[in-house]
Every structure is written in C-alpha cells, then in structure tokens.
C-alpha cells in the first residue's frame, strides 16, 4: 500500500541537506523495522519519494514523503519512527493513500510559509504595514536568472496570500513545478516596494504546509489520505 508520511524538521536539523535527509530516513526505516517495500533488481532500494526538497537552513512543520509499505498500520509506523528520530525530526502523521492519488511530488500546488527575523535580528522599520498596497499592484515583475539568460517573471498571480501577523510574514504561494516561488523572493520584492533593502539572510523561513489542488480547492497533502 502507498503511505504518506508527514514530518517536521527544525532546530539543528535545518542544517542537514535534502539528500542527507533522504539517507537519514532510509536508515530510520531499517532502524524502526518498518516493513517498507524495496524495488527489484540487483541493488534494491526502498520505494520512497519526497514531495519537495527543503533548502538548507529552512525549517518545516509540513514535509512529506510517500513510501510503499508491505504491512503495518499508521499508529505502528508513526510510533516506531518517532522512537528512532533525533531531536529536531518528528513524524506528524502517517496516512494511507487511496488508489489513484498522485505521488507527493507530482501533486504539489502550493506551500505556506512563515518568515521572521532570526535570533538577534529585528524587522526592518516601517516595513510591515504596506502589504495591502504591495498586493494592489497590477503586476510584481522580477527578473529571474536562469542558466542562459535573465527572464522576467510576474510574481503576482503566484502569491495566493501574503500578510503580516504576530511579528511574522505569512504567505501562501505557488509551489507547483510550473511556478514555484521562493518565499524570500516575495520578501525581497516587498522590501523594494517599501524602499528598504532587506537583509534576507537575517530571516528564518519555516514551511508550514504543502498543498495539492483537488476540485478547485487547496488541500494539505496529508488530507488526501486516510487512517489505516
């Protein structure tokens, strides 16, 4: 059966890169004795696919990967995995995917983020109350550096919501393969709009949730699954 696992990554674990997190989870599957399925062939590997790589330095309360499971139930898998997690890694939910649900990576439509100053830094002055005006612009064009050249790109249709609340920027932005938006790109543009040169590396990003689109609605990736 196809199983979706939601996890959090925070604290010192934010310094561990995506490939190492994959290796970490492969080891954890063995250590936790989870009955994960392996591919066939001379060098079998665990059937495991991650939704979206998280950059080094970014924390998350809503990361996902799908596995193929031979046996076991949600509670068992969650408990066993949590028992072997290191501080800064946490299994939030384990659900079974009904037949026909696309894999985590293919189905991503959006992601929500919280962005706030790291310890020892503060928000740039007067830069939190102009969001409404910022979003009222007809377009928010940025130039993106690609391998070959620079292209112009309009952020606006890809920002689904953007606000400042409880000392943090909060946003829901496009995360589909066609229009993936980096949260700091929004903050940078907003800073320019306010006439402030925002030091992006003073900000901590937390990804809260990854969404897929179903019948015109954004749904969290875990909500497509069911308990088992």
């Amino acid at each position: 059966m196809k199983v979706r696992i939601k996890f959090a990554k925070y604290g010192v674990m934010k310094y561990i890169g995506h490939l190492d997190i994959m290796r970490y989870f492969q080891k954890c599957m063995r250590k936790a004795d989870v009955d994960i399925a392996y591919s066939t062939g001379f060098s079998p590997h665990q059937i495991m696919s991650f939704a979206s790589p998280l950059g080094v330095g970014v924390e998350s309360r809503g990361e996902y990967f799908d596995i193929e499971l031979n046996s076991g139930n949600a509670e068992y898998v969650k408990e066993r995995l949590n028992a072997v997690m290191v501080p800064g890694m946490e299994i939030i939910s384990v659900v079974k995917l009904p037949d026909g649900v696309k894999n985590a990576m293919a189905s991503i439509a959006a992601a929500s983020y919280t962005v706030f100053p790291k310890d020892g830094y503060e928000h740039e002055n007067q830069c939190t109350d102009k969001i409404e005006d910022f979003l009222l612009q007809e377009s928010i064009v940025i130039t993106k550096q690609t391998k070959k050249n620079e292209i112009e790109f309009d952020l606006k249709p890809h920002i689904f919501s953007f606000e400042f609340d409880k000392e943090a920027y909060r946003m829901l932005v496009d995360a589909s393969s066609a229009g993936n938006i980096k949260p700091l790109a929004v903050i940078e543009e907003y800073g320019k709009f306010c006439g402030v040169d925002i030091s992006l590396d003073h900000y901590q990003i937390v990804r809260n949730e990854i969404f897929t689109e179903s019948e015109g609605k954004l749904m969290s990736l875990e909500s497509l699954g069911e308990d088992f």
């Binding site: 010192v12 674990m13 970490y24 290191v86 501080p87 310890d119 590396d201």
Partner: peptide
C-alpha cells in the same frame, strides 16, 4: 534536550557542510 550550538546561524549557513559541526547524530 535542546543544545545551544557553538556556531552562529550566520556561520553555519556560510560554511561548507554545516552538518560537520552540529552533532545530534543517531547514537
């Protein structure tokens, strides 16, 4: 138990392979 890292976030984000310096490994 949460351990306070010896290196600042700024340094860890700057160096190659910060995982070398944070401990916290399995076992």
């Amino acid at each position: 138990m949460s351990i306070k890292l010896a290196l600042s976030d700024e340094i860890l984000m700057k160096v190659e392979k910060p995982a070398r310096y944070i401990g916290n490994e399995i076992n």
